[in-house]
Amino acid sequence: MFPAAFDYIPARSTDEALSVLAQYGGDARVLAGGQSLIPAMRFRLAKPAVLVDINRIAELATIGEHNGELRLGAGARDQGLELSGQILSGRYPLLADVCAVVADPVVRQMGTVVGSLCHNDPAGDWPVAALAGNASIVVRGKGGERVVPIDEFIVDSYTTAVGDGEMAIEVRFPTPDARTAGAYFKIERKVGDFATAAAAARVTLAQDGTVAKAAIALGAAGPCGFRVAEAERALVGAKPSAAAIAAAADAARKAADPVSDTRGTVAYKKEMAGVLVERALRKAFARLGVEDIR
């Protein structure tokens, strides 16, 4: 089905895009890769009156490191990230896991990281990774710019802190230090399907080998991705052990609040949330050289 009619404005610069957004407010949507927005428009789930295409804005298509952060512009695509020097260097294992499994390989050639965050699908990969990766998003409007931590950026299903007349122009992921690693796992019926369950973990080890910091996030387990504070508490201060991992996984099972659908029952999805947290933790620890955890 064809989308409802709309006016198309190909912006040549971020300022031009912001001017158009300021003019049309809530009637306008930003078009980046379009891999979620265009299907939503085709199903008439979205009927924006105006689309502001940002694909031609070179200043937004950037991937680079500044001030201890990996910064991805709103035009940076999943495949561009997957093939970037920063990902190939192995220093961002959590993000490397994610950009290899978003949707399917063809979708990743158009789809953008910031676009996925703005779409904020309950089963989306990037919101989960951004939560576990402690990301922040730069939101700009005509009036100025603010840097929004991911847990404030995510408001509800398909809803973010980006207001009318504003756009998300960049996401920033802190560069992990040598004692920090993460991992991401999801279960999908087939490549490209929505996740049945998804989990991301990030851990930092102290000098004595105990867990200094932990972040655990779930996807497809509620109205939007979320962090599981209880699971994080089970890890911090503990040595990486089977018992600590099991406690974190149990907390994830309890916190998961999925819906029953063709992808699985509530009981199955809750169980898988725990299984994936365990897998993600074991992989993250292994990446820090801690293997065969008993």
Partner: peptide, 21 residues
């Protein structure tokens, strides 16, 4: 799927023709 600029594979059902300008 078609090729864009010789090196990118894109789903032509999920791209507006105006984006190919």
């Amino acid at each position: 799927v078609v090729l864009m600029d010789g090196e990118k594979a894109v789903k032509s059902c999920t791209m507006f023709a105006v984006m190919a300008d």
